[in-house]
Amino acid sequence: MIRLVALRLALMLPILFGVSIVAFTLMRALPGDFAQASAGTTAISAEALETIRRNLGLDRPVWQQYLGWLAHALTGDLGTSFVTRRPVAGELLPRLAVTGELTLIAGLMAMIMGTATGLASARLRGATDWMVRGLNSLLLAVPNFVIATLIVLLAGLYFPQLAIFNYVAFVADPAGNITGLLLPALSLALTVSVTISENTRAAVLEVASQDYVMVARAKGLRRRTILVHYLVRNALTPVVTVTGLQLAALLGGSILIETIFTVPGMGQYLFDSVANRDYPAIQAIVLLSATIVLLVNVLVDITYARIDARVSYE
């Protein structure tokens, strides 16, 4: 198991290397740069633009810029923001923590809602099945930013005491911080829970028709034992897969949702950085997000091996 984890972690390095190259070149392929963006609509001389570029090293060939960035990145220095002139890492980490918390809460919500509705749908069938599947289709058809906007509108109109836009830091007020994130997390979780729910339902139905479930019934085992040890444990593998994949989607979705709920996470920061062509900041965000997604994938693989002894990565 330790070898598996070490191997998977080592494999992350070439992937992150590739991601850094793609992000670096793509950003510079966009029209405009920081010099133009910071000038905005004010008239500015060509010489002044050149000076800004030279100071930031943007006048050098892209590959030279990349090697320079890489040399710093390998020592743990993610560069300095063009806009604030402060280290990117210091700017990013507190925002990443907020986004991480939001994603985590949303992920937990989605897992609980998804597995519960999927399981109920598969085991109870009938009216429950119809209801869950109808609701799932509806939620799947509505993008999460529309759900978020609706939640903001409804809460704002009918429950003004909910104070949707009052984000407070965790250290200042832990309870207030978490309750403040519940609605954004819910709007993120709903769409994702649909995927988990549908997959749980399919997996449980598939497992229920297996011979070993019939054998378990022939053994006279109690319903609960069969449900937990035979149905759920076997249905878990496909459910863990989609949940892992969906966590990456949650991270992407949180960027939109944060903007709607004015949560000071990575979302707003990424948006501003792109608008300003703040290359070091964007580069750091992309790299960190990729790292998180890869780590989640490793976690999923470890979970597989824990659930199912047939899985081996040797």
């Binding site: 011979d211 070993y212 054998v215 022939a218 053994k219 659930i307 199912d308």
Partner: peptide, 18 residues
Amino acid sequence: GRRIAMVFQDPMSSLNPV
């Protein structure tokens, strides 16, 4: 299981794999 027990046809699919 206690009074009347049963053995099925296909042993390959009759045991819980996990």
